[in-house]
Design a binder for these strands. Sequence first.
DNA 1: GCTGAAATCCCCATTTT
DNA 2: AAAATGGGGATTTCAGC
Lengths: 150, 150
Amino acid sequence: MDETDRKIIELLAEDSRRALADIGAVVGLAPSSVNERIRRLTASGAIRRFTVDTDPAALGLPMLVYLWLALREDADEAAFRRFAASHRRVLECHHVTGAWSYLVKLRVGAVTEIESVLAELKAGRFLGRSETVIVLSSAVAGPHVPAPGV
Amino acid sequence: MDETDRKIIELLAEDSRRALADIGAVVGLAPSSVNERIRRLTASGAIRRFTVDTDPAALGLPMLVYLWLALREDADEAAFRRFAASHRRVLECHHVTGAWSYLVKLRVGAVTEIESVLAELKAGRFLGRSETVIVLSSAVAGPHVPAPGV
DNA sequence: GCTGAAATCCCCATTTT
DNA sequence: AAAATGGGGATTTCAGC
């Protein structure tokens, strides 16, 4: 993982359909060499996958929501993690320092869906306390990669 | 944006290098038709870009951090947003409801960098109060797309 | 808007240094 | 590891429906 690898990843992040010859022209390598480096970066896991960054609003998920969670004392934490990992609306779920135990990032189509998620968390006996933070606007939005369908 | 378009986006999200013929076989269209739909989805902005999902740790950014910010009363909010948008370590920056005004997502190589970011926020006269939340582990991690280099 | 075929461009494997 | 080459395959375009 040298400076050339980093540059290649950066170029692919901008546009992963760029031709190997174009990338090679920027980093000063032949197309076949660029290809070999990309193969290695993918094999090593530095590149996880080739994907698309999409507009969540165009896909019917205009609302971004963060949930702070304190799990119940007796909650099955492994089950909670599985729940989060398999939930279509959960984009991220982090165990964090501080007063709350988990931070969950959601994308939803409308406010009513937030209540559904909280209801599911309650039904799974995961939820102790929670606080819902709604995103009003984003100065920096981050990429959106749609989850695999049901 | 019909069901076929959604399916195409989902397939591209999984692997954007899939051949048009493969995608066509799944959705029941000729390769040229799939190509035309992808062209339209890209032109309309539903697909923002073809990119790569990477391992942040492999790129030297193993730590994920969230910052809650209350801006100074007299802060230049537009300048703050420009600062956030141009900062290499800021992955997301959201104006939010609740007790804090902004939620900032950072990726850093080590804890010391958090202090640098807070110092920059102070130097720019943006920072009122702040709270730092460090991610210990992620049940759902979300994609990581490296920012364009300086 | 979809198809199918033609033309073009690109990837990929092999060989060589 | 990187470069050069050629064959196979993919994308892209366009005329027709």
